[in-house]
Design a binder for these strands. Structure first.
Length: 799
RNA sequence: GCCCGCUUGGCGGAACUGGUAGACGCAUGGGACUUAAAAUCCCAAGGCUUCGGCCGUGCCGGUUCGACUCCGGCAGCGGGCACCA
């Protein structure tokens, strides 16, 4: 944005903050602005640098090489988002991979703990807990040693399915695997293949979605226990260096990806399991098919009973068949003595010295180095003699220079003329600062804990932390379900271990908002356009100067794709309350939603209608007037019905707000307004109920339309601010009706409804249903075989 | 490709733990008021119908007296996939 708008990032950021603050204030949100902080302010990032030093001290921050996307034309590191079909988004040059020394946070130290603690997050959505679990991805499996012919050192592979080793038909290495890199030095074709793989960039999505391809290295591996089996060793584009050992064995019969690969390169597909069928295997079969690692040929894998086809069976019969492995529904009760096939296989490998059982995590350490200007400088100094030296705490903050230049690509801090040149704090010799800044996810991993003592000289004031944290109710977009939330969970643990805090979980309750989505637009040059740069014509959407616009898919609003809508327009046109009411009424907040302006007029009409409803209702009894006697006993009166409606609305809205069902609360307020509008009686009871109803309505509205609610409160003679009044309470004796409408079905089809006293006896309900004319007609003169009665709900007559 | 969701009238959605599908709103049509328009108010409305009913919650199948809700499979859309944050 700074480059595009020719503005300094600081100015751009602070101006945006000002605009956002003004917008939030004009919405009338209840925010304690005295605690506002900005993570780009030196006061904040100074403390963040202190935390970084503490992490370094504790061994939680370390340096190692890692791969990045490199744009060879722009000479800059690209984010995955900036790699489009293997090319840089600005230069359009094929992307390369490059290895850089970078800083990492050791989140994997907490892998087990982060996983186990998910169970305790009982006020988190189940889907988020699942996503975090899968992200950490703890798997039991085995490291297996393969001997390579003509090479002294064995190749280690990791597998979660050692029980399918009998069906191995190839090995595959990641293009970044050291062995692959070594072989490429002497094999130009392999070198070219690896270079081609590297154009995919570093994103897992791109790598896994690409067509599966491999290059045969010519090496042969001995099968660990099948003496006459030799396996070809490939380098394959789908093997990830970051997971396991960066090398795998392929069992095409039991893995779709391996099967695709085997088909492509003509490799054998060797079945090792077949669903157990209805009959018991014979003794001869059990012997023939018994795998090396188990006593029985019937094994369970992932809960399914399967019949193992041991190596001997197919070697003898030269059997080679492709069968996809879907065993659901084949569990045969007569056969199974459950055996955990994976554990058996691990025990076998260990006993034979062919491998060992391990636990593998999908979770990787968090790379925090960014080659960017606008961020928190990493407080480290590189000295030619002392190596990596932390900036002494008293020298913090390491300030960003204001006079960076953004004309050149690459890292402005690296090519700033003076900034990086310092003396080594240890030896005093000339040294250089680390020119990387931290991932901004670091900023957001502790900001919530800073709010409790935003001006303190230390990162956290313990008394305030103990008073406020963990956060009772955290609210954020579902796009943060994994990274931000996991990083924050890691941070609290790391800070605890560094002595700053004493807590593990930052967020006791979590509510995830759905994304607000919008169509995306591009001009003929492919540049993103914002919705207000696009005009809708009969021939289709056009740019401001009348050129055709390409409409892209509907996706989450984002700055980079410009598909954002400014709510300020609505506030200016209709006022904050209309905007708030519209947003609350439109969709449940946890669902994604496509933004549309249709309906805003309806919210505006309702705001006006409420005002008229109250102010044009005629004379009301004074505030606090006693309830007319006899109102509650006047069964069937319109006034009592409206009074009950008001109490039901209190109960319903209270519950809806508590559960974040704002759109339902809105619907209930509409209903109450409707029923009060219909209460036209001139009698004392009606007038009293009208006042009670209006006051109730006003109170219930106050969180949603605070400005209108305060005005109505004054109009109704309320003292002080409505915001300071207690929330209304429903009278339980008025929220239930004495009779209920009960549906009557015949053979499961709704035929009529009957009105019964609440909580009527089952027998009475049955009798009433059977006596009904419509029911009798549909029973066709037959006697009921069965009658199901669900009290207050339904009677189902089965004939 | 993998992980997680979602899918209900013309539209946004409601339906609590398997028990009357379509609350409430938007848009629409008709009417009232008005010289007229706006605003407002009233009425109608899932589809089909021989007016008895029948069919309907993305698609196919299953469990159940009963399925939007549970189970199996599939499709479409959205989020995430570690440098968008």
């Amino acid at each position: 944005a700074a480059m595009e708008k020719q503005v300094h990032p600081a100015k751009w950021t602070y101006e945006n903050i000002d605009a956002m603050r003004a917008q939030l204030q004009s919405m009338g949100l209840s925010i304690d602005w005295s605690r506002e902080l900005a993570t780009c302010h030196p006061g904040y990032y100074k403390l963040q640098q202190e935390l970084f030093l503490a992490f370094f001290e504790a061994g939680l921050a370390y340096r190692r090489k890692s791969w990045v996307n490199w744009d060879p034309v722009d000479q800059t590191v690209l984010a995955n988002e900036q790699v489009i079909d293997g090319r840089g988004w600005r230069s359009n040059a094929p992307v390369e991979r490059r290895e850089l020394e970078q800083w990492f946070f050791r989140i994997t130290r907490y892998a087990d703990e982060l996983l186990a603690a998910i169970d305790g997050l009982d006020r988190w959505p189940e889907k988020v807990r699942l996503m975090q679990q899968n992200w950490i991805g703890r798997s039991r499996g085995a490291r297996v040693h393969f001997t390579l012919e003509g090479r002294p050192e064995p190749l280690q592979i990791f597998t979660t399915r050692p029980d399918t080793l009998d069906g191995a038909s190839f090995l595959a290495l990641s293009p970044q695997h050291p062995l692959a890199q070594e072989l490429a030095l002497r094999d130009p074709a392999l070198k070219a293949f690896i270079a081609e793989c590297e154009h995919l960039g570093t994103s897992e999505a791109a790598i896994e979605a690409a067509e599966k391809r491999g290059h045969d290295t010519g090496l042969k591996a001995r099968h660990p226990y099948l003496d006459d089996v030799r396996l070809p060793v490939y380098v394959a584009n789908f093997v990830l260096m970051d997971y396991g050992t960066g090398s795998i064995f392929g069992c095409p019969a039991h893995d779709q990806r391996d099967l695709d690969f085997a088909r492509k390169y003509g490799l054998p597909v060797i079945e090792t399991y077949r669903p157990v069928d209805a009959r018991d295997p014979t003794e001869a079969e059990l012997q023939l098919h018994r795998p090396r690692f188990a006593e029985s040929a019937v094994l369970t894998v992932e809960g399914e009973a399967l019949f193992h086809i041991a190596a001997a069976a197919y070697v003898d019969k030269s059997e080679s068949v492709a069968v996809r492995y879907t065993a659901a529904g084949f569990m045969a009760e007569s056969v199974v003595t459950p055996v955990d096939a994976v554990e058996k296989a691990i025990a076998f490998l260990e006993a034979q010295g062919l491998g060992e059982g391990t636990i593998q995590y999908r979770l990787r350490d968090w790379g925090v180095s960014r080659q960017r200007y606008w961020g928190c400088p990493i407080p480290m100094i590189h000295c030619p003699t002392c190596g990596v030296v932390p900036v002494p705490k008293q020298d913090l903050p390491v300030l960003l220079p204001d006079d960076a230049s953004f004309e050149r690509s690459g890292n402005p801090l690296a090519h700033h003329p003076t900034w990086k040149h310092v003396r080594c704090p240890k030896c005093g010799a000339a040294a250089e600062r680390d020119t990387d800044t931290m991932d901004t996810f670091v900023d957001s991993s502790w900001y919530f804990a800073r709010f409790v003592s935003p001006r303190a000289a230390v990162p956290f004031e313990r008394a305030a932390v103990d008073r406020w944290l963990p956060v009772d109710q955290y609210i954020g977009g579902i796009e943060h379900a994994i990274l931000h939330l996991l990083y924050s969970r890691f941070f609290m643990r790391a800070l605890t271990d560094c002595g700053y805090l004493d807590m593990a979980e930052p967020f006791a309750g979590l509510f995830t908002q759905g994304m607000i989505c919008h169509e995306t637009y591009r001009d003929p040059e492919g540049r993103w356009l914002s919705p207000d740069e696009v005009t809708k014509a009969d021939s289709g959407p056009l740019t401001a100067d009348g050129r055709p616009v390409t409409v892209g898919r509907v996706e989450k609003m984002s700055k980079s794709k410009k598909n954002t809508v400014d709510p300020q327009r609505i506030i200016e046109l209709y006022g904050a309350d209309t905007a708030r009411w519209f947003m609350l009424s439109d969709s449940p907040p946890d669902r994604e939603m496509e933004w549309t302006d249709a309906g805003i007029e309806g919210a505006w009409r309702f705001v006006n209608r409420l005002w008229r409803l109250v102010t044009e209702a005629g004379a009301l009894p004074p505030r606090g007037a006693a309830e007319p006697s006899g109102l509650r006993s006047a069964e069937g009166s319109a006034a009592l019905a409206a009074l009950k409606a008001a109490h039901r609305t209190i109960a319903g809205v209270s519950e809806d707000l508590e559960r974040f069902h704002f759109n339902k609360a809105v619907a209930r307020v509409h209903e109450l307004a409707n029923s009060l509008g219909e209460l036209s009686g001139k009698d004392d009871a009606s007038a009293w109920v009208r006042r009670f109803g209006f006051e109730t309505l006003t109170r219930l509205l106050s969180p949603m339309m605070p400005h209108l609610a305060e005005e109505l409160w004054q109009y109704l003679g309320g003292a002080g601010l409505l915001a300071d009044q207690p929330w209304p309470a429903a009278d339980p004796s008025l929220t239930v009706e004495s009779t209920v409408e009960v549906a009557v079905q015949v053979n499961g089809k709704l035929r009529t409804t009957i009105r019964l006293p609440r909580d009527a006896e089952k027998g009475a309900a049955e009798a009433a249903a059977l006596a009904d004319q419509t029911v009798r007609r549909h029973m066709d003169g037959k006697a009921p075989r069965k009658v199901i009665v669900v009290p207050n709900r339904i009677v189902n007559v089965v004939v």
